[in-house]
Structure formats: C-alpha cells, structure tokens
C-alpha cells in the first residue's frame, strides 16, 4: 500500500479549528497531523516532513495587536532549538519546494501579514491586509462564493460557486496601492469572491459581502497557485448536516469544503 501524503495543521497560541481542519485533510486523502507550534520550535517536528501545510482558524494571541500580528512576528523571529534556524526559514523552504499552503480565516490573515499572499513576483512583502469588518462586528453567517475558473489556484480547481460560513471580525480585504489590486485582477489571483446567490455576481452589498472587502475578495492566491488563503471556512462544511439549510434543501452528502483538500491531495501526487 502506498503511503498517503502527510498534511500538517499547526496549532497553539489560540488556533481553534485544528481538529476539523485535520478531518478535512483526512477526507481529502491526506494523513493529517496536528502539530503544536512548540513541537516545531523545539525541533521535534520539522515542516520538511510534510506535503501540505494548514494555517487554520482561531484567534492567534487573541488577535490583540490586530489579527495574527503577534504570530506573524513570532514566525519572523523565532528560532528552532538545536538547529538555530528560524522557523520562517523552514517555511520558505516549504514554499520553495513547491508544496501547497492553505490559510483559513486567522491563517489567511497570518499569510497576508507575513507577505505570503499575494506574493507578487515571488516577493514576501506585505502589500494587503485584512481589517475590521465594515459592520464593526464579529459575525457568523454563511455566504455565497463564486470561484474564478481561470485562477491559477490549485485548491479551487473545478469549483464554480459554493456556500461556506464566515466567522470573523477582521475580514475586510484591503490594499493601499491600487496597482496591487490591478495586478491581482489581471493575474486572476482573486480566486474567490463574495457573491449574490440570486444573480451569481460578485457583490459589495452587506451582508452578502459580509465585511466590505475590496473587489469582494474572499480568497486570494499567489501567482503559483500554491499559496491560498480565504476568510470563509471550508473545513466547517464537511457534510451536508453542516449546511444551515440542510433540513430543507437537497444537498449532496459530501460538504463542499472537502474539494479544496482533495485538490491539494491530487496536486501533491496522491490518487
């Protein structure tokens, strides 16, 4: 029997969605492992041993300095015991090896603030952010999303539209330089957008666009398509009973969120 590719879900310091993210990886085909960040910093576990990295949802350090700010700082400075290398070097190596990374919600915020997304020209520099929702509130609601079929994103292959929950207070996608947005548009990096379920078009209208994100962006990818982050939670929709209207609508047994993980699995050579 072939060994299944390994997925890692990093947890600790306020990450909350590690179990369902690991289950999503499993359903997608991976052999998942939840790894506490202290195990990475102690050198007991190294990212090199994995094929797919999940930075999942939660409230890293309480989002006290702004969403994921402390963790971005931690990953920038923290050293791995023994080797002396910084954890960020392991991460860069992971990216250089062409392995996929998925950031969901807090994980997406982390990737954007570390400059891993959109990573234009392969340069890790922060050019965008995720900030407070226009409503000023944390909100939990299901939203309709449309996927850009021409996006290089490997995770959304085959997806046209889907419904997923958002659960955040800081999900408004913002860039300060209009050129960044232009380049993302032309590179088809605005992979997922909040949409009106009726018209099927991207929307700026609340609550369909729950946070006021520019360009209605809900999820974005790097030009390589291997780094992908989104505010909605694919790992929260693994079975039809997760859907808010499952008692009244005909829905497939499998939740729409699994496809992202299966795509990652197929990309890394699982079958």
């Amino acid at each position: 029997m072939r060994v299944r590719p390994k997925a890692v879900v990093i947890t600790g310091n306020g990450t909350n969605c590690e179990r369902e993210a690991a289950e999503a990886c499993r359903l997608g085909g991976f052999d998942p492992r939840i790894v506490h960040i202290s195990d990475l910093l102690s050198g007991e576990v190294v990212l090199d041993d994995f094929h797919f990295l999940n930075l999942t949802g939660g409230f890293l350090d309480g989002d006290d300095l702004g969403a994921a700010m402390v963790q971005a700082n931690r990953l920038r400075y923290a050293r791995v015991e023994g080797s002396g290398e910084r954890l960020s070097e392991q991460l860069s190596r992971f990216i250089d090896q062409g392995k996929p990374i998925l950031g969901v919600c807090n994980g997406f915020q982390l990737m954007v603030k570390m400059g891993l997304l959109p990573c234009l020209d392969g340069e890790q520099r922060q050019v965008a952010t995720l900030t407070f929702n226009d409503s000023g509130r944390f909100e939990d609601r299901w939203v309709h999303l449309i996927a850009d079929a021409s996006s290089p994103c490997i995770f959304t292959r085959g997806a046209e539209s889907l419904t997923l929950p958002v659960r955040h207070g800081e999900g408004k996608f913002v860039v300060s330089d209009p050129e960044v947005l232009d380049r993302m548009e032309s590179g088809r990096l605005l992979t997922l957008r909040y949409a009106d379920a009726g018209s099927g078009r991207a929307t700026m209208d609340y609550p369909m666009n729950p946070n006021g994100s520019m360009a209605a962006a809900a999820g974005i990818c790097s030009p390589s398509g291997l780094l992908f982050g989104l505010m909605p939670h694919p790992e929260a929709y693994l079975h039809r009973v997760n859907h808010p209207r499952w008692t009244r609508e005909e829905l497939p047994e499998e939740g729409a969120g699994i496809a992202f993980f299966r795509n990652a699995f197929e990309y890394v050579g699982g079958s």
Partner: peptide, 22 residues
C-alpha cells in the same frame, strides 16, 4: 447571536438560526 461563533469545531448540525433566510 450572530456575534457568537456557533460552528467552530465543525460539528454544528442545528444552529441557532435556521430556515429559508437563515
């Protein structure tokens, strides 16, 4: 109730809100 995360951990089946308009 919208301000509370009612589905983290992935096990939500009957949520605080239901129906045609959630």
């Amino acid at each position: 109730v919208r301000r509370y995360d009612h589905e983290v951990q992935g096990g939500s089946v009957v949520k605080p809100f239901t129906g045609a308009h959630d």
